[in-house]
Amino acid sequence: MQHFLRKTVAVFESLGDRSLDSFERLGRSTLFLVRVFKSIPFVFLRPWLLIQQLYSVGVLTIVIVLVAGTFVGMVLGLQGYNILVRFNSESSLGTMVGLTLVRELGPVVTALLFAGRAGSALTAELGLMKTTEQFSALEMMAVDPFKRVIAPRFLAGFLSMPMLAAIFSAVGIYGGYYVGVYLLGVDDGAYWAQMQKSVDFHEDFMNGVWKTVVFGFVATWIALFEGYDSVPTSEGIGRATTQSVVNASLAVLGLNFILTALMLETS
């Protein structure tokens, strides 16, 4: 009996411990974000810092986004055609490919790829800088690492995401076009006309863009915080990198549901 009691107490203890831990992390990550925001104006004085990060965050992610976007678009073309042809409405293929990419798959899949490629790299880089005392060294050189290191990376991630998602959707639409029009014989004009008729600028395109803005913000924030907050050992960096990808992906998928619900509500 006493044994059972002790076990129960232990369960509650670890639960409480973990809750407190996550609360503390939430607080620290918020403070982190505040410091990042305060440092952002500095980046505009040093555009070269931003350009470097746009390269490592944006340019290096382009290839994977191009390849993934093309294949996703082609699969949409193939699947969409096979579903629509049952209702004799394969001319609506453009609508289906366009809406799916612009509203959902473009923002979400790009954000997941972004978290896996750019986010993990950011986390590992910051983790390594922490392990090798580079943050302390900057502090000792009277340089604020938030201004020099973190804010440019944040801004680069935030700016890259919408562009990457747009590239993803654009090549996806051409991928679907290739499969639908060239391989399966959907009418060329119908593909574009049907798409243009039913993809609304505000309701579909702009809502998609807003999603990418939110995802870029959250994924970059999580990646940078995990790196900055990592335990400064090689094991710690590994764990932080995994955490960064997992947390960013889950946050993106969860937020996607919330954002979609909100957007459908107001339309």
Binding site: E133, Q134, A137, M140
Partner: peptide
């Protein structure tokens, strides 16, 4: 002040 860190702490980039 100058500080010499154990690992050198040079900026890797």
């Amino acid at each position: 002040m100058g500080m010499l860190f154990q690992s050198g702490a040079l900026l890797t980039d």
